[in-house]
Computed example of a mutant assay.
Amino acid sequence: MAEAEGSSPLLLPPPPPPPGMAEVEVPTAAETDKKPFSGSGGSTMDVDRSRFPYCVVWTPIPVLTWFFPIIGHMGICTSTGVIRDFAGPYFVSEDNMAFGKPAKYWKLDPAQVYASGPNAWDTAVHDASEEYKHRMHSLCCDNCHSHVALALNLMRYNNSTNWNMVTLCFFCLLYGKYVSVGAFVKTWLPFVLLLGIILTVSLVFNLR
């Protein structure tokens, strides 16, 4: 009787899971790449939907960026990731960035906002956008970078009101991250090709 009880199936260890069960629960590499990644404050970025909460975003401008890769079009995002950018005279675009989707983003820290009032980040982005709806666009003096600089000045980001197009260009170059390898290639490949053509032509004329 003891032997019968010892051989009872109830006392045996549970059988291993059928083959393939573990594979179902493990995400594939493609699924991992598409998964949104978290930002500060519990917000999430979603590259596919062009959602970059608390970010400054940048994208190449055709022809101009081909010759000067550090120059491009800039916008600033709300706390939910909606892009606002000074796209032309008296026009600030919302959720439809001029010159295409962002190629690069610079993640900012909402804890570095020193302006008072509820939701100071979004208030500053809104007020800067309303101001630039009444301004003429100037490529060299008052442009998309100036719009972003005004938003950062209004919110006193990093306890500063000295943001301008030069500092933004420098910090975006220093801290900005490309959204993908393709975005990096799109930015720099035309410049490399043009540089190669210029060098080749120069060598041909110098060797004559």
Score class of each variant (00 low, 15 high):
Asp46Arg: 09
Val63Asn: 13
Arg84Leu: 05
Phe37Leu: 13
Lys177Met: 03
Ser180Trp: 08
Ala115Ser: 11
Met21Thr: 14
Phe91Val: 09
Ala149Lys: 02
Asn159Phe: 10
Pro62Ser: 01
Cys55Val: 05
Met1Trp: 06
Leu174Arg: 07
Pro15Phe: 01
Glu94Met: 06
Thr28Gly: 08
Val47Phe: 14
Glu131Gly: 14
Asn162Tyr: 13
Met45Phe: 07
His137Phe: 13
Asp142Ala: 07
Trp66Gly: 12
Met74His: 06
Gly182Cys: 03
Glu31Cys: 07
Leu207Gly: 15
Leu64Trp: 13
Val125Asn: 02
Arg84Asp: 01
Val185Tyr: 02
Ala4Ser: 10
Phe191Ala: 15
Lys186Gln: 06
Ser146Pro: 01
Val63Trp: 09
Leu168Arg: 06
Ser93Tyr: 07
Thr28Glu: 02
Glu94Pro: 11
Met45Ala: 08
Ile71Pro: 09
Thr44Val: 15
Phe99Gly: 15
Ala22Pro: 14
Phe184Leu: 01
Thr200Lys: 13
Gly100Tyr: 04
Tyr54Asp: 05
Leu10Gln: 15
Ser129Pro: 00
Asp95Tyr: 02
Ala115His: 12
Tyr157Thr: 09
Leu195Tyr: 04
Arg135Asp: 13
Leu11Lys: 05
Val204Pro: 07
Pro9Lys: 00
Lys186Tyr: 10
Asn143Ile: 03
Phe86Ile: 06
Ile198Trp: 10
Asn164Pro: 05
Cys169Ser: 14
Asp122Ala: 05
Met165Trp: 02
His126Ser: 13
Gly41Cys: 07
Asp46Lys: 12
Tyr178Gln: 12
Tyr157Gly: 04
Ser38Leu: 13
Ala111Pro: 03
Ser160Phe: 03
Asn164Ser: 04
Val181Asn: 10
Pro118Cys: 01
Asp33Ile: 02
Glu3Tyr: 11
Met1Asp: 07
Lys104Val: 07
Ser79Trp: 05
Ser146Thr: 07
Leu152Ile: 03
Thr28Lys: 01
Val82Cys: 13
Leu203Tyr: 05
Ile76Gly: 00
Met155Phe: 08
Cys172Met: 15
Pro102Ala: 03
Lys35His: 02
Tyr175Leu: 14
Val47Trp: 10
Asp95Leu: 01
Ala128Val: 09
Cys144His: 03
Ser93Arg: 13
Thr28Phe: 03
Met155Leu: 06
Phe99Tyr: 13
Tyr114Ala: 08
Gln112Pro: 05
